[in-house]
Amino acid sequence: MSLARTASDTRLIFLRCLRQTLRSKVAIVFGALQPLLYLVLFGPLLKDLVKVRGFGAGDAWQSFVPGVLIQLTLFGAGFVGFGLIGDLRSGVLERLRVTPVSRTALLLGRVLRDTAVVGAQAVLLVGIGLALGLRAPAGGVAVGLVFVVSLAVSVASLSYVLALRTRSEDAFAPLLSAVTLPLLLLSGILLPMSLAPGWLDVLSRLTPFRYVVDAARAAFRGDYATAAVAEGALVTAVLLVVSVTLGARRFRAEHT
């Protein structure tokens, strides 16, 4: 399968998926509302937390917005597997699999759509954040968005792997929660992990999102040349390669 074929098929699948998303008014409204809810209903609680020991440098928004960005990615891209199970059930996936379409494109086209949706929400979230009082260097915000986009690709790919393994919503949903909830809690998105006792901090360091959240926060503070950013970049890159490889392999394998 040539690279050009994969690229053009990826574009076709991406456009199909994007049109599907845009057709769904519910998806658009709630997609746009979600970032707003995070900031308006949760953000104000953090105002006074800055004074708490261990909350780290920078103001509350600088710490909170990057965290919410990663959370948005984790959940937004985590749930995309449901759509694939729908396509399995309607027979769309099988119909596409008997065409000469590149199997990798069946994954990448979807993942790109998911990434575009998460990316748009992330931009919206940063925009609302700025309106509510977030102050962060443009470069830092850009770096943060790069983390978001890379993470979205990884999480969406893994969500599809899980969906193709379980093949039913009933099995997929509990498994998804079982994976995302500990990852969320251990990432330090809600409260900084510097507040954690030693054992929890160690546990947290064994999960990838911890590093990505720390890196995004550092970037929003403008501390680019830090170990946190470097570690976050490394973890994100490794996660990206592993996830896409697993996803592509799963899509190339036969589905029994």
């Binding site: 076709l12 199909r16 049109r19 599907q20 396509d87 027979g91 769309v92 119909r95 596409l96």
Partner: peptide, 26 residues
């Protein structure tokens, strides 16, 4: 050409778009 038992269309996608995508993929 393969026509599966349950078909292979997304209920929300217009028929014309399904046909157009299929033709492009081939």
């Amino acid at each position: 050409g393969v026509v599966a038992q349950g078909g292979g269309t997304d209920p929300s996608v217009p028929a014309g778009e399904e046909l157009d995508l299929q033709a492009r993929l081939y």
